[in-house]
């Protein structure tokens, strides 16, 4: 199923929403529909937006305090007790501080815990490197049993969160603090493990996730003006990766650029390289954070500083063309 966005990229001035906002809203709706859904947080509920669920369902909300390891362990226990826990904190703490707990207490026993980590990537902004997870996709996707989802916008977040609740097993959903434009087309339906072709093209495939998708769409527009037809793929499930869609785009285009707000090592770019080097070796360029920690600054400035812009994607494509 191909969703086409007849698009010229996200329209400037279109409303932007942070994916964490959509998460907060989706949780409340889930709470109404599903009595088995419980939510845990580690003293960041106002930032992760779980506070909305907490207000409406105080009996199904557990704040563990600033104790991320216990957050993951308690969530695992709640799953063992037959409930469907959503555990939230910042991505840097969910994937980093509590890595062993996620590995041993959640992924290994394959428990039904949904880790919804907000404030991923450099667009955290002013808080700086200590709060900017640039390695969480890599950490989570190497865990057996773990499903890894990076929604691109509010619509996809809402659907991914609701889908995750009905998906048996551990899921990591990566969310952002910074408002992002709507990129999913009208009538879009999220499916775990399904990438979406947002724009057709046969010269280069722009393979993106999260905020990278809107960057890719804008880049595709700029490339079109130069006579280069770029396909744009939204790979919102990093694991399991939609091999068929990605390989077929690589086959058609012969060149691939990956775009993500994550280290160029081990994230979407890494996953795509692993796949294509075995299944369809083509030239690949990875646009992302180039193996450095982040820093403080306004999100848009940081995106420019680390090269996460449509212009940068265009340069990567031109570089591949040898221009």
């Amino acid at each position: 199923m191909t969703h086409e966005l007849n698009a010229r990229g996200p329209a400037a001035g279109s409303p932007k929403t942070a994916t964490r906002e959509a998460y907060g809203k989706a949780l409340v709706e889930l709470g109404r529909a599903r009595p088995d859904v419980v939510v845990l947080d580690a003293d960041l509920s106002k930032s992760t937006m779980t506070a909305r669920f907490a207000r409406e369902f105080p009996d199904r909300f557990y704040n563990v305090g600033i104790a991320e390891q216990n957050l993951m362990g308690t969530a695992a226990g709640l799953a063992l007790g037959g409930l469907t826990p959503f555990a939230s904190t910042f991505a840097v703490f969910a994937a980093g501080r509590a890595y062993d707990q996620v590995r041993q207490s959640i992924a290994y026993p394959g428990l039904n815990v949904k880790i919804c980590a907000t404030h991923a990537g450099i667009t955290v902004g002013a808080d700086g490197a200590t709060h900017q997870a640039i390695e969480d996709i890599a950490l989570m996707r190497v865990l057996p049993n773990m499903t890894v989802i990076v929604p691109a916008d509010d619509v996809e977040t809402e659907q991914a969160v609701k889908t995750a609740a009905s998906h048996e097993g551990p899921v990591y959903i990566r969310l952002g603090r910074h408002p992002v434009p709507r990129v999913t087309p009208e009538g879009y339906e999220f499916e775990v493990g399904k990438a979406t072709v947002l724009r057709q093209g046969d010269d280069v495939a722009l393979v993106a996730c999260g905020i990278g998708v809107s960057i890719a769409l804008s880049a595709a527009e700029m490339l079109a003006a130069r006579g280069i037809r770029a396909a744009v793929l939204n790979v919102s499930t990093i694991k399991p990766l939609d091999a068929r869609t990605i390989v077929s785009a690589a086959e058609r285009c012969g060149r691939v650029v990956t775009i993500e707000e994550h280290s160029t090592i081990g994230g979407l770019g890494g996953a795509v390289c692993e796949l294509l080097s075995e299944r369809r070796p083509v030239a690949v360029r990875r646009v992302g954070v180039p193996d450095v920690f982040g820093q403080s600054g306004p999100p848009d400035e940081l995106l420019r500083f680390y090269g996460l812009t449509p212009e940068n994607v265009v340069s990567a494509v031109e570089e591949m063309e040898g221009r």
Binding site: G73, D100, Q101
Partner: peptide, 25 residues
Amino acid sequence: IEASAGSLGQGLSLANGIALAGRLR
């Protein structure tokens, strides 16, 4: 076996979660 274990220090959190689930249900 009620819970996988081996990495020390994690079982009490698991037990808490199971106890919370029991109460809620």
